[in-house]
Design a protein around this nucleic acid. Sequence first.
DNA 1: ATTAAAAGTTTACGCGAGTAAATTTATTTT
DNA 2: AAAATAAATTTACTCGCGTAAACTTTTAAT
Lengths: 344, 344
Amino acid sequence: MNDPKIRTMEEFAAISGISRPTVSKYFNDPGSVRKSTRTRIEQALEQHNYRPNIYAINQNRKLTKSIGLVVPFLVDPFFAEIARNIENLIVATGYRPILLNSQGRPEQEVENLDNLRSFRPAGVLIAPLGRQSDRSALEAFCEEVPTVLFDSNISGMGRGFVGADNRQYARDIVEYLCRSGEPPCFFEMRTPANPNANKRRQSYLQTMEELGYEPHVISVDGEGWAFEDIGYRQGMAAIEKRRFETNTILCSNDRLAIGFLAACYEKGYRVGGGPQNALRVAGMDDHPFARFTCPPLTTVAQNYAAISSSAVETLLTLLNLGDSELPPRRELLFEGRLVKRMSA
Amino acid sequence: MNDPKIRTMEEFAAISGISRPTVSKYFNDPGSVRKSTRTRIEQALEQHNYRPNIYAINQNRKLTKSIGLVVPFLVDPFFAEIARNIENLIVATGYRPILLNSQGRPEQEVENLDNLRSFRPAGVLIAPLGRQSDRSALEAFCEEVPTVLFDSNISGMGRGFVGADNRQYARDIVEYLCRSGEPPCFFEMRTPANPNANKRRQSYLQTMEELGYEPHVISVDGEGWAFEDIGYRQGMAAIEKRRFETNTILCSNDRLAIGFLAACYEKGYRVGGGPQNALRVAGMDDHPFARFTCPPLTTVAQNYAAISSSAVETLLTLLNLGDSELPPRRELLFEGRLVKRMSA
DNA sequence: ATTAAAAGTTTACGCGAGTAAATTTATTTT
DNA sequence: AAAATAAATTTACTCGCGTAAACTTTTAAT
């Protein structure tokens, strides 16, 4: 690294003894140049650690080597974890991830899309806010940029969707709860932020019916993404009003369950299976911290790895296909895995 | 929005009836043009939603209007929350944030710095991994780009540091624990990832001595950023080996405490103040989910807002100063606020 | 109204690479 | 070794905007 400051590709090409256009080819795809020249370039690279100017690179290119990644709420460890996975996968394929956080705000989501547009990414992976998303803004964006949705589906939007098989999630855990104790009540937000919650409720209702139990849905107020807080406050209220018809509560997601567990604790209800406990509580998602609740939370584990890699693969396939042969929009749902812990 | 596809600033300038250089001035600083022209531009803007090409903008500018933000581990809600705050502040000042996640990996941190360099940001805010950081890489970076450290200090590195007054954190909570029950043992990782942990231990030792109690430090093995898991596993082991000399455990941070609470639960120890409980547990940081643990965690709350805004302000001051008059490196420490909950 | 200062316009060049076309050189194939 | 193919080189133009200089118009000050 004797560094007489290489600034441009011109300078670097001169030093490595290769012409600039060839060096340019190398940076776009090292495999596209002869092995001998590749070696020479890489030797020069080791000595001078030159990097092509990222702005100049992209200015005159229609298809950027970057992929946008928009998540609705990064403080939610579920999304942080998914984002982490996807970022790594994107890097592994040679693209550069651009991570944007909508922070639970519809305006921010639209703003992110606008920003993203100006980056001219090759493609975009977006987990929409859901109900609050600006549909027309999203739609306009999807027409401009190859986009794959994940986590939260909006039918017809984008060129594909990868997410959870919410019906299976709810079915599996409801069946488990029913055969291991009293049938569950369903605890949820009345106006859930994303469509997964609705599917989970529907599946709860259907499964309960199939099993011959009477369903009990407790829908509570609350806006925004502070699910734990809503689970706690509304859990307290629901307990006080004795709104639960059985001793088993299935929460619509783990974050709600974490808040609900806090309410149970404060109310002095012991949570868990077995006769010594007053209540059983379960969630869905296998939130990264669900195994550290007290008691550890019984839940349905998202297949993080599969969802992440499938989302990236779906997008990459689209990108390699070219605009001519648009495949039909595909929806890929991954099953969750029942995780039995102590809470139910 | 009748959109006959404005692509360049030239086209947009023609439509708005203003010359391109003036339009350019407008985008760089709307306040720098006369009010009447500003209005005309903004009217045209409403009709055509044109956005200057981000690559072209930055290519020919030494000082980019963007600020890098590097965090060590975004799955940690503490950093997610800080990042959220800082991002908002950066946007409010007219800069564009570039968020990069080191994911707990030193190589990734170096990679992030390299990437950031090629973005030529006006300045950078970085929370280093700490012990594992590549000092020389960091140092080289700091010399090239105006950089302010936060959360995790590395003495002399960068042009300033903003973080927590860890000694005060530990002092305050140790004093509280001592006057409200048995003096605390200190539960920590043997080789903590960042220097805050060391300061907290030192302050624990000093405060215990000042109060005339014998300190007990339980240092446990464990690498990486899975603090909850370490707190859980090593907490289990420590409980089994009866390594705690008193009934009060102060954990080096909340994530460790969350794991430790899970261990207590599994071992059947009731946690909280009062005679009916076996153990008291406290943490530090006021992790976003600390109030939802069972029992709710007594801790010292980071002043998220102050740290975030102070970090951004420190950097902006530097940027506005120009290279001539470098102020001395300043370290700003913010006090935490004792938050008494049920766990101790 | 005259003058000075501020703001806007024209013109022209540069940033650092992508990329296409024509040509030369190197590598394979027969 | 000759022919066919693949890879590099040269040359030259492009992308979209920043920015400086010289000049003109508008606004503010006297």
